[in-house]
Amino acid sequence: MAKSIDVSDLDIYYGDFKAVEDVTMTIPARSVTAFIGPSGCGKSTLLRSLNRMHEVIPGARVEGKVVIGGQSLYDADVDPVEVRRQVGMVFQRPNPFPTMSIYGNVLAGNRLNSRRMKRSEADDIVERALRGANLWTEVKDRLTKPGAGLSGGQQQRLCIARAIAVEPQVLLMDEPCSALDPISTSAIEDLIHELKSEYTIVIVTHNMQQAARVSEDTAFFNLAGAGLPGRLVEMDSTKKIFSVPEDPSTEAYISGRFG
């Protein structure tokens, strides 16, 4: 049950600082959308506003509209907790729970919400999620060991497993592969290919090839200048963005001639 996301006239603030300005875009359901753009242009910020994680930061606020599957996220009566249950997220930095085992980390979304389940059901979820994140073979013999004892890349895959274990309808991934080797990266990309038949996926990446490989649509963000808010320059099908982009700055960024 994937859902499309409609963003309109979205301004995002950190206190008085406007980080992202006037974004209007439509992210289609059951497909992969890539966010690209230079560092600091607000990709993570926009991503976090899609599951109401932005407001967790003190002083941070959002103006504008985000509609997921016909439901406006920022309506007064919307429960952010419910939103986050349906819109999962993988962070830029791996953040496994240090008090939990690998097994516990994968099940965290279920356990922390006190969902009761049978042992066999839990085992199934863990195995499926870990296989999905290409981590199963590496950790299947030490599921009870602490999650913090894994390598950085393994931790990131553990976090991906944790996010897909709760089967969200939308999955937001903030540079999920930036700490991964090519093999794991390709496993994650395979996973993204698999997941997109059921989920709506948004992925932030600095890797142009990756954006070209995995995404159907690409949105390019840029900063007008230092201290100015980031804005959406253009969004189109990935094919078009990577071959005949409309904006010259998009072309410059993609071809590496960015100044």
Binding site: V56, Q86, N113
Partner: peptide
């Protein structure tokens, strides 16, 4: 306690009080 952990928990749809108690 690193903020990353709280955010990780929120992002899984865990309410704040449960995040405090369990994470």
């Amino acid at each position: 306690v690193p903020n990353d952990l709280r955010e990780a928990s929120y992002a899984l749809g865990v309410p704040k009080w449960r995040t405090i108690v369990k994470v």
